[in-house]
């Protein structure tokens, strides 16, 4: 049996949750077993997970706010009762908080940064990303249970047949050790780790007030905005937008880098992107070595033109 943590946000499933449930369903198919999704907390429509391959859906409606010990304890108890061999988690901020605790409570091995379906279910053997995407590792579990943390967007929506979606309810059995408090969330755009399209700019833009054209480009694309480290250090953009080795690691389908040189520490956080477009005035900028498409030119001319061309395309 495969058990998947089906994370919600304000009662809705995250996109990374669907990816994780489909991943779990594919693992279950390989192992000749079934996939159970565990939903904790308020959820508008748990049954939605059936179309993503969940055979069983367990809803713990009284879970309250996310607290890693409480959630991991409950998930471990359910895993043990159902004999789950693989415990699948999307590597969001909460998912990562859960993984290590869950591994101990479920007496499991932990394999993080997973980027592909398992090569084998027994022993569980799977490809993961290492060294900030500079290496790929095939890792094998030596334990009877294994926690797998997936990099969001890296695997995509695997093809699955719908599951029965048998809905059951359960109670919390884990104990909280901390008290979650107030949340502040930027409204509107999709969080960077989950974003499919990201438009990012660097020191080449010269001043905070020049970000209007970056936002305009992001808006046409339905993209989330990001920035290089110096840009957030100077305070042109919030720290929450800083991507790279020491910032957020992203895995979008499309990454557009404007006026960013392409330093190795920046690339470490973005090289999981499927397609990279670099726009830079300097033909020697290192980003051109890492990009799929390059535009040598002044961002202040190129970006508005690109925005116009996209508007025409989407019209």
């Amino acid at each position: 049996m495969v058990l998947v943590f089906a994370e919600t946000w304000k009662g809705q499933f995250k996109k990374s949750t669907f990816e994780a449930v489909r991943y779990g369903a594919s693992c279950a198919q390989m192992a000749g077993s079934h996939c159970t999704a565990l939903v904790m907390g308020a959820c508008d429509n748990p049954s939605e997970l059936a179309t993503h391959g969940a055979e069983n859906i367990i809803h713990v409606s009284d879970a309250g706010s996310f607290e890693p010990h409480a959630f991991a304890g409950t998930m471990a108890d359910i895993a043990q009762k159902d004999g789950a061999k693989a415990l699948v988690i999307a590597g969001t901020s909460n998912g990562k908080a859960l993984a290590g605790i869950l591994a101990i409570k479920a007496n499991a091995a932990a394999i993080s940064q997973v980027i592909a379906l398992p090569e084998s279910m027994s022993p569980l053997t799977v490809e993961r990303s290492a060294f900030s995407s500079k290496g790929l590792e095939i890792c094998a579990s030596k334990a009877a249970q294994t926690v797998l943390t997936l990099i969001p967007n890296a695997i995509g929506m695997t093809e699955v047949s719908p599951g029965a979606g048998n809905l059951q309810s359960a109670g919390m059995s884990g104990t909280a050790l901390a008290v979650p408090g107030e949340q502040t969330v930027a409204s509107g755009s999709i969080p960077l780790p989950e974003a499919e399209r990201v438009v990012s700019a660097g020191r080449g833009l010269k001043a905070a007030e020049n970000w209007g054209m970056v936002e305009a480009l992001a808006t046409v694309l339905g993209a989330t905005t990001a920035c290089s480290k110096p840009v957030s250090d100077i305070g042109w953009r919030p720290h929450s937008e800083h991507v790279g080795q020491t910032g957020i690691q992203i895995n979008p389908q499309l990454y557009i880098a404007i006026g960013i040189s392409g330093a190795i520490q920046h690339l470490a956080g973005v090289s999981g992107s499927k397609v990279i477009v670099a726009i830079n005035i300097d033909p020697e900028a290192p980003f051109f070595k890492a990009a799929d498409y390059g535009v040598v030119g002044d961002a202040f001319e190129v970006v508005p033109k690109l925005t116009e061309a996209l508007k025409k395309h989407f019209a």
Partner: peptide, 11 residues
């Protein structure tokens, strides 16, 4: 940091 925002926690 939570995805897209921040949360305070006491312990």
């Amino acid at each position: 940091e939570i995805d897209g925002g921040k949360e305070s926690v006491t312990a």
